[in-house]
């Protein structure tokens, strides 16, 4: 019964999606105050892949995500999500901001945070009810921390907090996920759990874009990589573009991460 419902939901969604690429960035240029932080960046993300965005600090990785979601007005260029401007496609996108971007002392529970993922579909004024509670609970189960549902969020470990954020994105029930450093400062167990989760999303035909810091794990975790340093340095399948030349162009100097791994 449940299975059928899920199947139906999936079909409906696939129907609604033409064969458009999940993300198409063209000539994106973003300036903050007087300084360009992204310069003429163009690339496409094909359907159903795990994509890493890497680059040194200040390379514009987070800015890229925010410009894609229309939070920052680009100076030139644009990003299309499933062939449409983001405003018309935002229901297809799930977002995981950096864990450090919020105050974890906020008076609320893990379950409550996950329900926020449903606010977009609830629309204005309506409150989350029992159905939303159940959906949120399922998402917490998927990330393996259902037993902490009622915990105040400051009492969770860093890894658990990251899982809460991922569960919130799952609740958005999206096709394209934009995640900002989900592996930052998490324990080994959480890292494995997140990787499993991303792979499961991929197996369901979803597309996941991850701003990533740890170059050593890129070949293991991802299909494609976008190497960024304000300019687009390289972009494509990991085995083709994730090499020393491109990385040293982006990071400048020798890249010891690769030799080590």
């Amino acid at each position: 019964m449940r299975q059928v419902e899920m199947e139906e939901r999936k079909n409906r969604k696939l129907e609604a999606l033409p064969d458009e690429t999940p993300l198409e960035v063209s000539g994106l240029t973003v300036a903050y105050r007087d300084k360009p932080v992204l310069w003429d960046v163009s690339f496409e993300v094909p359907d159903g892949e795990l994509v890493a965005i890497v680059g040194p600090n200040g390379a514009g990785k987070t800015t890229l995500l925010k410009a894609v979601m229309g939070m920052i007005e680009p100076a030139a260029g644009r990003a299309l999500v499933y062939g449409k401007p983001f405003e018309k496609a935002r229901h297809l996108v799930g977002y995981v901001p950096q864990r450090g971007s919020v105050d974890w002392d906020f008076p609320t529970s893990a379950l409550d945070i996950v329900q926020m993922g449903l606010y977009g579909k609830l629309g204005w004024f309506r409150r989350p009810g029992r159905k939303e509670r159940e959906t949120a609970m399922e998402c917490l189960e998927k990330v393996g921390i259902a037993s902490f549902a009622d915990r105040q969020i400051s009492q969770l470990s860093g890894g658990q907090q990251q899982r809460v954020f991922l569960a919130r994105a799952l609740a958005q029930d999206a096709n394209l996920y934009l995640t900002d450093e989900p592996f930052a400062a998490v324990d080994y167990k959480t890292e494995r759990a997140i990787v499993e989760l991303l792979r499961e999303l991929k197996s369901q035909g979803k597309t996941v874009i991850v701003v990533h810091h740890d170059l050593g794990t890129v070949p293991e975790y991802f299909d494609r990589v976008v190497i960024l340093n304000k300019n687009l340095v390289a972009e494509g399948p990991v085995e083709k573009v994730f090499n020393k030349e491109n990385l040293s162009e982006a990071y400048g100097g020798n890249v010891s991460y690769l030799a080590g791994s």
């Binding site: 000539g27 240029t29 360009p36 310069w39």
Partner: peptide
């Protein structure tokens, strides 16, 4: 003033690289 000058230079340079 600086911002509109920047915008001009940005557009020109973008144009060149394109």
């Amino acid at each position: 003033l600086r911002r509109s000058e920047n915008r001009r230079v940005f557009s020109r340079d973008l144009l060149l690289s394109r």
